[in-house]
Design a protein around this nucleic acid. Structure first.
Lengths: 338, 338
DNA sequence: CTGTTAGCGCGTTCAC
DNA sequence: GTGAACGCGCTAACAG
């Protein structure tokens, strides 16, 4: 691989100083047309590309943000990442994505790595609500915005959905269709969003006088396999649930999978409602009823606010905390209980 | 935000020189136990993290690779990215992902940006087969491996599936089920992989004496909407196809969507076979018959080979070119023609 | 308008 | 074993 050409090489070729090259690179005003032309020509001829690493070092800015997600394989995260990356690219920011697979130590590792790489800010989706690290970053005024997640005490900037309400309207929808035996597939309550949904679930049950039944609750790790099996077994049992409220569309698909393998018809035999509204849910072959997370809005806002923190350092009144309204989207996986 | 602590700060605190700090950071042998302890203590106390940007500049290595994908919203790319990121993390490499939305100018932009960021190498999925840029990089010996794609003339390192064969066995499967009216949903043939699948499609038709019918072919841009509408219209027509061979599972889902909105039953009224075997295809609620791209293998190999190129600079015999065998996975969206 | 000079925070000789 | 000094390629004053 041929060795790189530097701004200094360009300078020599154009017969100017290296700082002049830097100036044309950065579009400084008041450069004589002639020299600018010469420099541009030399750049073109030598195929020069500026070394962003050196620039970052000198400028103490990397024009790069970090994005930490729980699982890129989950379309909710992938699609969110897509909009963030799109917006970022428009604004000339690059993004480094880290996958935590929902594990706390990976979160810490990712943060450390991103800090080492001197990213200008970080968007984090899926954090343990007890995370000390997040709080530290917040207190150190390092630009971080939490995406659909938050921590205990709310010492953080975040954009979230009203998760309690989302769960509430989901369950309410099922109840109004006549369901009383409602399974709830969630995940570890160390995630504040899930904890809030737990509350919404219980609240809806309570309001309609439906007893809370631990047997119908899944609150362990996110695992397609485990959730599939949990649902499968539940569907084998006598007094099986007539409906499932699932905390992500991806896992709702696992329930549909289990139901299909049971030869159960949806929604005739079982109703399923998800959460997220990932793209595929609107596919009419699937038609998953769900609660929209408004990922477009949430993701755009997250990036926007992060850049505000990055660029307007200090002048921003922290914390930035936005709560969006959930929306019930009725499709074909929910129907009357029989 | 409190200003960063540098190796120099650590040095002062420990009463040693900055180069000594550097030495312990990099685990040099022959450091007196005492001074090592002191330095480590100072690092701990000050909460020092090394500046990877400065390190990269000095070392001329970033321990970062670029990954350019067509569309993170397509699970095939997201899932591939997932395995690449996982392996990379294990090997202490970071990855910067770029989304091109399948547009050539974005490819060029992404490459330029990654080169600017001094990545050590790049994995590229989805390239225009006429791309000059890729060839240039190859000739300049810059570490690049193409992921399930290649360019005209094969002047590149790549890991691909035998796409022609994949298409061939897909169509053969349909023919053997009695289908003769087989629609083919593809994309721009500027992508070599698609071009090869075109050949496979035609070959299978030819072998069974089925005439090629342009009316049944979609070869424009990847667009859920457009493909959906194309399929929808086709399904309205008299002499409508009894089956679809679709060049990606994601788009196969679009066909299922269109069929569902036509109240057509799958596979009774229409058969659909995809390509990729994304995770959701194995969901029994969907059960998409497809051709496996072996993304786990392909992605692992791509990363492995890239690191070989990066770390074994020069000593590797180029080009690295691997062709994997496709595999037909029969599920429930294909059945006998009626 | 442009050149000179001094860092940015590390890794890396080369002496001692 | 360890420190001093230089360089990676660029931006940012400061002169002129």
């Amino acid at each position: 691989m041929k060795s790189r050409v530097s701004a200094y090489d360009v300078a020599r070729k154009a017969g100017v100083s290296q700082s002049t090259v830097s100036r044309v690179l950065n579009n400084f005003p008041h450069i004589k047309e002639g020299t600018k032309k010469k420099v541009l020509a030399a750049i073109e001829e030598l195929g020069f590309t500026r070394d962003e690493i050196a620039r970052s070092l000198a400028e103490k800015k990397t024009r790069t943000i970090g994005l930490i997600i729980g699982d890129i394989t989950n379309p909710f995260f992938a699609e969110s990442a897509g909009v963030i990356m799109g917006k970022a690219a428009e604004l000339e920011y690059d993004v480094i994505i880290c996958n935590t697979n929902h594990q706390d130590d990976n979160l810490e590792k990712s943060i450390k790595m991103l800090i080492g790489k001197r990213v200008d800010g970080i968007i984090i989706a899926a954090v343990n609500r007890y995370s000390k690290k997040i709080k530290e970053l917040y207190e150190a005024q390092f630009p971080v915005v939490l995406y659909n997640s938050s921590i205990e005490g709310n010492h953080a900037n975040f954009i979230v959905l009203d998760n309690e309400k989302g769960a509430y309207i989901a369950v309410k929808h099922l109840v109004e269709l006549g369901h009383r035996n409602i399974a709830y597939i969630s995940g570890p309550s160390k995630f504040l969003t899930l904890h809030q949904r737990d509350i919404g679930y219980k609240k809806a049950l309570g309001e309609y006088g439906i007893p809370y039944n631990q047997r119908l609750i899944y609150d362990r790790e996110f695992s397609y396999r485990e959730i599939y099996q949990f649902a499968y077994k539940l569907l084998c049992s006598k007094d099986k649930p007539t409906s499932f409220f699932v905390t992500s569309d991806q896992m709702a698909l696992a329930i549909l999978d289990a139901a299909a393998n049971h030869n159960l018809e949806v929604p005739k035999d079982v109703s399923v409602i998800g959460f997220d509204d990932i793209n595929i849910s609107s596919n009419q072959y699937i038609g998953l009823t769900t609660i929209s997370q408004k990922k477009e809005t949430m993701a755009s806002l997250a990036l926007e606010k992060l850049l505000l923190l990055i660029e307007g350092k200090g002048s921003i009144s922290m914390p930035i905390q936005v709560v969006l309204e959930p929306k019930l989207i009725i499709r074909k996986t929910t129907g009357r209980a029989n």
